[in-house]
Simulated assay, not measured.
Amino acid sequence: DAKRIRDIRRQTKTLVTIGACATAGGIQALRNWSDHEEFIASVYAHPEYIETLSTSTPIADHVAVDFELRGCPIDRHQLLEVLAALIADRSPRTPRHSVCIECKRRGTVCLVVTQGLPCLGPVTQAGCGAICPVYDRPCYGCFGPAAQANCPALSTHHLAGKTTETQMIHALRNMNAAANVFQIESDRLESEST
């Protein structure tokens, strides 16, 4: 895939990565912290037929990317905006603020404040409509890091409450585990806990 994306980049004027797998390595980036051979052996009846990389990385780690359309899954309205922007030769206008703004707009009670849950809403880019908090689940970070995400401050806040380091590491290592700021913070927490 790394060779294929380099070939694609050479042939394109504009390269847009779509979804958490393309923009941040996706859920399969969890292998970056484990023995992928062990995963293959436990999942597949005939692991000898499986060929895979030991790490999962964002496409932007390999080639220049012009725009990242984030999400797991992506938002269809954002996809239409990106396509319209490309046709009109302008920059796409997608949210850059955090999920917390979406919660406030919906009138959703903050789960961090009321229940002390390890929510990634303050450091996650908006786009989902704050679906998880509406159903009393903390934000899982499906749309990746928001602009200027301050993950260390969020970890400090959560760890001062009832959240453990392990819970915070698991929160950061989700759909966007290989997103730079999420990865840096989860690695920092892991190194401090050992």
Rank of each mutant, 00 (worst) to 15 (best):
D7Q: 12
V82L: 08
F67N: 05
P118Q: 00
E190R: 14
R106M: 13
A60I: 05
S34C: 05
D61H: 06
N176L: 04
L111W: 08
V63H: 07
H97C: 09
A177W: 00
A22C: 12
R173K: 09
P152L: 12
A29S: 12
R106P: 12
L154Q: 07
D66M: 14
Q167Y: 07
T108I: 15
K162I: 11
Q167S: 10
R10Q: 14
P118L: 01
R93Y: 03
L53R: 13
N174Q: 06
N176A: 07
D66Q: 15
T23I: 14
T166Q: 14
P92A: 05
T108N: 14
I184L: 10
C110V: 12
L172C: 05
A88R: 09
E102M: 02
I87R: 13
G144C: 10
P145Q: 07
Y44H: 12
Y135H: 15
S155N: 08
T17R: 13
D1L: 13
R188V: 13
A171D: 00
T12E: 13
L154T: 07
I87W: 15
L111T: 10
Q148M: 06
D1E: 11
L83T: 03
A22L: 09
D89F: 04
A130P: 01
D61I: 01
S193Q: 14
L120G: 01
H170P: 01
L86K: 09
D75G: 03
G19D: 09
S91Y: 07
I87Q: 12
H170V: 05
Q28G: 03
R137D: 04
R4Y: 14
C103D: 01
E165V: 14
V134N: 06
G26W: 07
H158K: 05
V109H: 14
R9I: 10
A126N: 01
D7P: 06
N150F: 08
R96K: 05
L159Y: 12
S54A: 15
V43Y: 10
M175C: 10
A29F: 04
Q78T: 03
N150G: 01
L83A: 04
E190V: 04
E68C: 06
T194R: 14
G129S: 11
A179F: 06
R10P: 02
T164I: 05
